[in-house]
Design a protein around this nucleic acid. Structure first.
Length: 485
RNA sequence: GCCCCCAUCGUCUAGUGGACUAGGACGCAGCCCUUUCAAGGCUACGACCGGGGUUCGAAUCCCCGUGGGGGCACCA
């Protein structure tokens, strides 16, 4: 994959990376990360690190990259500049490109003039295309400022083949003489990517469909060099949740407010798992017959470029939650424990590994995001809980009746050697039965008393982990609260 | 304005001329399970953008509309 370090690493780039990774691992190829950093003006410090960090977190680390090395390096385009100049000159020599000495001001004037004439397509007027190559070479040698433009055919048409869309035929009269080498000596994407793809022996190019419009240029460049073309795949774009238009700054801000994000580097903090995120983005633009929860390995098994889809896909965060929860449920206890521990630590709770190992199975199927563990299990690690007095009153009963029930619970439980489900549940059920109450009422009071909340993991299992002493003291505390009402 | 791409339930998609009463998943609604919340199981609702062709037969092929997306830089 070849992102440019000009901003944050988002879902779209992540999916491209995933597909690249999947294809490489499916076919026994190498997954390469190349940095397209030829635009010094838009360079954003730190973005290269964010790309690496995100890829790493997702678990799709490149085989070759600026930091991992590899036999096709260097992997930053700015470190390959000599190569591009050499190749650009080769094109000039062969008559496929030419130096252009037009100043930005002249270009601007020409554009304005064309706009005034309401031409269908504003393009380079071709002034320097007509310069005699010998004269042009002399001007270049004399140190004059110049760029190199690709000499697009002016007649006929260009047929480019996309693996998903078939042949795309473009009339050459709609094409332009694009700049392939800038005056600062660095190439534009058009040249750099084609040269690198060839040098690095890239077999498949998967990129966003925003490249479709320059697709004819790219195949013309490759053909001018006489190189073999890679398989071209233009992936669908991601649309905002409404399906109307691409994600904008505003939409990503809105997503943040809703607890979601389109930036991979933020996913971890929001409690998402790499497995969930990967599964989610994989199925946007890839149609598997019976789509399902898949691990990375399962994706590799099933991946096939023929089953990629060309139409735009709306981002659906509810699906992310679905896949995240599904993958959390797939996690072994020890693994899940390890992953949720940091959230307790972060919250300043004295988490013990042994207890956490027992708690994890109790909350596993309740978690949508990892940080949900706090809402479900914080009470295990607190010294005491503060129940909401109102919640201590059972449905259909008043405070007086509720306190009686609480007292009875205390009486029963305190007579027991422990509060495990095996020993505590039978007598409690017997009490519910004999008192003519329903389980909801009695267990509801008990739940709020010992956990401090109305919603919790299974009650008796929870009590066992909390321990007899703490359960009884919390129950005692609840009785006091009820008495004061 | 011009060029290019795309078009099946609200969303992601399966479907490559007859096996389609159009399948699955998310979400939504109901039921079951159940001490809460989940998870799980079952059921319901829900789509081939429109119009012309081609064909014995079209969601599938062609054309025209319409809608959506992308591009028209010394950015990628």
């Amino acid at each position: 994959m070849a992102p440019s370090p000009t901003g944050r690493f988002h879902l779209g780039s992540a999916r491209t990376a995933l597909f690249d990774y999947l294809l490489a691992h499916k076919t026994g190829g190498q997954f390469i990360l190349r940095l397209e950093d030829t635009d010094q003006k838009r360079f954003v410090p730190g973005s290269e690190e964010e790309i690496l960090r995100s890829l790493d977190w997702l678990g799709i680390t490149p085989d070759e990259s600026p930091v991992h090395g590899g036999k096709y390096g260097p992997y930053r385009q700015t470190e390959r500049r000599d190569l591009y100049l050499k190749r650009a000159n080769e094109l000039v020599q062969k008559g496929f490109a030419y130096p252009c000495f037009c100043s930005p001001e002249r270009l601007e004037r020409s554009r304005k003039e064309q706009e005034a004439r309401k031409v269908d397509r504003v393009r380079y007027d071709g002034l320097c295309r007509a310069i005699d190559p010998g004269d042009a070479a002399k001007r270049v040698a004399s140190g004059e400022n110049y760029v190199i433009r690709f000499k697009m055919p002016q007649d006929g048409s260009t047929t480019a083949h996309d693996h998903l869309r078939g042949d795309i035929v473009t009339e050459n009269k709609y094409l332009d003489d694009s700049v392939i080498m800038k005056s600062d000596g660095l190439p534009t994407y058009h040249l750099a990517a084609m040269v690198d793809d060839h040098e690095m022996e890239i077999t498949h190019v998967m990129r966003g469909s925003e490249w479709l419009s320059t697709f004819p240029l790219h195949v013309n460049i490759v053909r001018a060099f006489g190189w073999e073309e890679p398989v071209w795949i233009h992936l669908s774009v991601f649309l905002k949740p409404s399906g109307k238009g691409k994600m904008s700054k505003r939409e990503s801000a809105q997503a943040m407010k809703d607890g979601y994000t389109i930036f991979v580097d933020d996913m971890k903090d929001l409690g998402y798992t790499p497995e969930g995120v990967l599964n989610w983005i994989a199925l946007m633009g890839w149609g598997v017959a019976e789509d399902d929860v898949m691990s990375l390995d399962e994706m590799i098994q099933r991946f096939n470029i023929d089953t990629l889809t060309p139409s735009p896909a709306a981002i659906n965060f509810q699906r992310l939650d679905h896949f995240n929860g599904a993958h959390i449920r797939r996690l072994p206890t020890s693994d899940l424990s390890r992953r949720i521990k940091p959230y307790f630590v972060e919250a300043g709770l004295p988490v013990e590994d042994d207890a956490l190992l027992k708690i994890t199975p109790l909350i596993r199927e309740r978690l949508v995001t990892l940080d949900d563990c706090l809402a479900f299990a914080s009470f295990f690690f607190k010294e005491s809980v503060e129940p909401n007095p109102v919640e201590l009153i059972a449905k259909g009963l008043d405070a007086k009746q509720s306190v009686e029930i609480a007292k009875k619970c205390f009486e029963i439980l305190s007579a027991l050697p422990d509060v495990s489900p095996q020993t505590a549940e039978p007598p409690m059920r017997a009490y519910v039965e004999s008192a003519g109450l329903n389980a909801n009422q009695v267990f509801g009071i008990l739940r709020v008393a010992v956990t401090g909340q109305k919603v919790s993991p299974p009650l008796f299992e929870s009590m066992e982990i909390i321990g007899r002493e703490k359960v009884l003291s919390r129950l005692q505390n609840a009785i006091q609260i009820l008495l004061r009402m």
